[in-house]
Every structure is written in structure tokens, then in C-alpha cells.
């Protein structure tokens, strides 16, 4: 592979790259903060909201067990949502920049 160096600074300030950066940053921070908060609700709930966690809802199955199981569903959903958005949108935006990398001066 012979490669001439693209002008990195120019790409960085290119509106298409800036658009990708802005979209990704907002989306990733949002998902990350949501995931962390949702995860820490579990130990906090188990420690300080025991009455809620002990409430039986489905035979012996209580809120605590359902909440712990929901952690798995939420983690998988976050991963799914990210992958879908990245596959559909971010990859295409990045590919567009890569195609034009040598023309951005």
C-alpha cells in the first residue's frame, strides 16, 4: 500500500467530520450515562429500597429479581441500539469521509 498522508487538520475541520463527531459524541455520552445510572440503581435499590425489592409480583418472583433481570435486557438493548445506529449511520458517514480523504485540503 502506498499512502500519501491525508491532511488530518483539514479533515478534522471538515463539516462532514464535524457532523459525525457531534452526532457520535452526543449519542455515546447519552447511552453511556444512561447505562451507568441504570446499573448503579441496582445496588442502591437493593440497599435503600428493600421493601420495594421484596415486593412479590409473580409467585415468589419479586421486584428485585425482575429488576436484576432487566439489567441484562437493558445492557443488551443498549448494545443493540448502538450497533444499529453505528451500522446504519456512523459507518456510512465515516466511509464518505474516507472516500474523500485525499481531496480534503
Amino acid at each position: 500500500m502506498t499512502q500519501t498522508k491525508p491532511n488530518w487538520a483539514a479533515i478534522d475541520t471538515d463539516p462532514r467530520f464535524q457532523a459525525l463527531h457531534a452526532k457520535k459524541t452526543r449519542f455515546l455520552w447519552g447511552l453511556m450515562i444512561f447505562s451507568v445510572i441504570y446499573y448503579f440503581l441496582l445496588p442502591v435499590g437493593a440497599a435503600y429500597y428493600q421493601d420495594l425489592f421484596k415486593m412479590k409480583v409473580w409467585g415468589p418472583v419479586n421486584v428485585g429479581i425482575l429488576f436484576a433481570l432487566s439489567e441484562f435486557v437493558v445492557a443488551w438493548s443498549v448494545a443493540g441500539i448502538y450497533a444499529k445506529r453505528a451500522n446504519r449511520e456512523f459507518d456510512a458517514m465515516a466511509a464518505e469521509i474516507v472516500r474523500n480523504a485525499h481531496n480534503i485540503k
Binding site: 455515546l28 447511552l31 453511556m32 447505562s35 446499573y39 441496582l42 445496588p43 437493593a46 428485585g64 429479581i65 436484576a68 439489567e71 441484562f72 445492557a75 443498549v78 448494545a79 448502538y82
Partner: peptide
């Protein structure tokens, strides 16, 4: 019982950081 299961959750959630950042 329950506490053991709760303990396992963090090991999975950890991969969200790996995936996103």
C-alpha cells in the same frame, strides 16, 4: 441467593464501556 445474582450483573454491564468507548 439474590446477592450472588446481583453480583454477576456488573460483569456484563462492564462491556458497555468496552463497546461504546
Amino acid at each position: 441467593g439474590y446477592d450472588g445474582f446481583m453480583y454477576s450483573v456488573g460483569w456484563l454491564v462492564a462491556y458497555i464501556t468496552v463497546l461504546l468507548v
